[in-house]
C-alpha cells in the first residue's frame, strides 16, 4: 500500500516537475481551520443536546485551547515550514482558524503542532498576543497557561442534578505534540487545512472519565488533569 502511494507521489512529482515547475509560485497561502465537535456533531455552546461518552447529558459553556509551534512538512523533499512565535488561542465562538499567510511553496503532506504551550512560553505570563494574560488563559496563582479549558454542566448520575464540570488543563507534562498526515496540498496553490477537535476524546482513550464518579468535578491539576492530558495527546485533533 505504502509502495503504491510512493509510486503515486513519484508519478505526481514527475508530472509537476515536467509541466509546472516554471509556473509554480515561490509562495503559497495556507490557513488552518478548526471545527469543534461532540458526539460527532458540530459543537454549540449552551445547548443541552450533547452527551458525554459516559452517557451523561452535557452542555458546554466554554471551550478554548492553545495550538502552538505549527510545522508543515513535505516529507518527499524534507522541506519544512516552521512558524515562528507560533502561539494560537482557539475556541468555540472564538478564533477558529490560523492564518499562516504566504509561506514557501512545497507539497506539504504533514502537519505538526502542539496542544498547549512549550515549557519556555509556559514559564512566565508577561507576554503579548495570544499569550497576553488579558485572554483569561493565564493562571494567576500558578504561573503558566491553561492549555485546554472545558467548562460546562452535566447531569449527575446519582443526584440527577445539573452539576458544574470544569477542566483547566495545563502544566508542562500535558504539553502534547501531534503530527497528522495531510492530503491535497500542492506547491504554489492556496490551501486550507481543515482540522477537527472531538471533545469526546478528553473523556476517553486511554483514560475513561465518568464525571459522576470524579472526586472533584473541578480539575485544575493533579492526576485527573494528567489523565485528560494523556487523552488529548492522541485522537483529540484529527484531519477533517
Amino acid at each position: 500500500m505504502k509502495n503504491i502511494s510512493y509510486l503515486f507521489l513519484a508519478v505526481l512529482f514527475a508530472f509537476t516537475s515536467c509541466d509546472k515547475e516554471d509556473e509554480t509560485p515561490a509562495q503559497m497561502n495556507v490557513k488552518i481551520t478548526f471545527d469543534n465537535t461532540l458526539n460527532g456533531n458540530p459543537l454549540e455552546l449552551n445547548q443541552e443536546i450533547f452527551t458525554l461518552p459516559s452517557g451523561e447529558s452535557f452542555m458546554v459553556k466554554k471551550f478554548k485551547y492553545y495550538i502552538s509551534n505549527v510545522i508543515l512538512t513535505d516529507s518527499e523533499t524534507n522541506t519544512q515550514y516552521i512558524e515562528t512565535d507560533s502561539y494560537h488561542l482557539m475556541g468555540q465562538d472564538f478564533n477558529s482558524s490560523i492564518e499562516l499567510g504566504m509561506i514557501p511553496s512545497a507539497n506539504y503532506d504533514q502537519i505538526t503542532f502542539s496542544i498547549g504551550v512549550d515549557e519556555v512560553a509556559n514559564s512566565r505570563t508577561d507576554q503579548t498576543g495570544d499569550l497576553d494574560p488579558n485572554n483569561d488563559m493565564a493562571w494567576n496563582w500558578n504561573s503558566g497557561y491553561k492549555f485546554v479549558v472545558l467548562e460546562g454542566e452535566f447531569i449527575h448520575e446519582s443526584t440527577q442534578e445539573r452539576t458544574g464540570l470544569v477542566f483547566h488543563i495545563g502544566n508542562n507534562q500535558n504539553y502534547a505534540t501531534v503530527t497528522l498526515p495531510l492530503s491535497g496540498l500542492a506547491a504554489g496553490k492556496p490551501a486550507s487545512i481543515s482540522l477537527e477537535t472531538a471533545i469526546d476524546e478528553l473523556f476517553s482513550n486511554p483514560n475513561t472519565l465518568v464525571p459522576s464518579n470524579l472526586a472533584s468535578t473541578t480539575v485544575m491539576g493533579g492526576p485527573v488533569a494528567d489523565q485528560i492530558g494523556q487523552n488529548y495527546a492522541d485522537g483529540f485533533i484529527k484531519a477533517n
Binding site: 514559564s123 504561573s143 503558566g144
Partner: peptide
C-alpha cells in the same frame, strides 16, 4: 506558585 515577579503581578 509564581515563577517571577513579572508573572506574579497579575
Amino acid at each position: 506558585g509564581a515563577h517571577d515577579l513579572e508573572s506574579l503581578n497579575f
